[in-house]
Design a protein around this nucleic acid. Structure first.
Lengths: 134, 134
DNA sequence: GTATGTGCAAACTTTTTGCTTTTTG
DNA sequence: CAAAAAGCAAAAAGTTTGCACATAC
């Protein structure tokens, strides 16, 4: 709730809709449409436009970020305190697993120094078959 | 022209439009709209729908692949014989530079063995400031 | 109470599809 | 010439926006 309290202190209102969106994004990367569908099923009153506006809002505060799994939809995931991670996306069952890479530092260093490119954000997605689906 | 000849032998027609799309994708990652705009400017007769259908066609033969720079548009790039590469995307000038990573093998090995996830494709994009824009 | 945020409807952007006409081989 | 691909127009997805109404604080 630390993030939510912070936003409130900043003078923003934590509406029921924002909270619902926030809570769902905590669980796993999700699209606007998935959020809309899930909440409607639960009988919640929420509009797609509000979901998109919530995204903008949370992105501004770096509470969520956009990611893309090459399926034509934008997905959003939480930005927590945890180490920057990436995704394993199973083509069979659709499972999305977070992964933290031991060799990542070497990689970023390689880019920053050898290429002299100042990286401020990066994304890595790995597509294939998960343990269960192989 | 090896790829083009291969397609012809497969019984496909290499139309003027397909060739135009093919040639542009050879140069750099590009969107449907950019291709359309460029070709129209050159006075070529080509329809957006045909561009999208060319994409599907070339993707089927793994001659191009889809990539995503988180700007809401799908981009396509050539799949050549060159080593699998990734992208440095400058937020200032929009430059896209290909990069081949020394430490990539270690990374993929890490995923395949430690996570037991069979990677068949992956994408990495690095956002930031290029040498000139820093 | 009032400013901020939501709902709704319409617009906009990107991509896809059905059908007719054109063109490649 | 016949099959394959392109053009055109309309539709489908996904996302954004203006404005009236609702609500968090």
């Amino acid at each position: 709730m630390i993030q939510i309290d912070y936003l409130r202190k900043k003078g923003h209102r934590i509406t029921k809709q924002r909270k619902l969106v926030y809570d769902l994004i905590q669980k796993k990367p999700i699209t606007a449409d998935e959020i809309h569908f899930l909440l409607k099923k639960q009988g919640q009153r929420i509009n797609l436009a509000s979901i998109y506006r919530s995204f903008d809002f949370f992105i501004t505060y770096k509470i969520i970020r956009e990611i893309n799994f090459l399926d034509g939809k934008k997905r959003y995931e939480r930005v927590g305190n945890e180490k920057h991670h990436h995704h394993l996306i199973c083509r069979i069952c659709g499972l999305v697993e977070d992964i933290i890479l031991i060799n990542e530092y070497a990689l970023l260093n390689e880019i920053n120094t050898i290429k002299n490119f100042a990286v401020d954000h990066h994304s890595m997605e790995f597509f294939g078959k998960c343990q269960n689906c192989q």
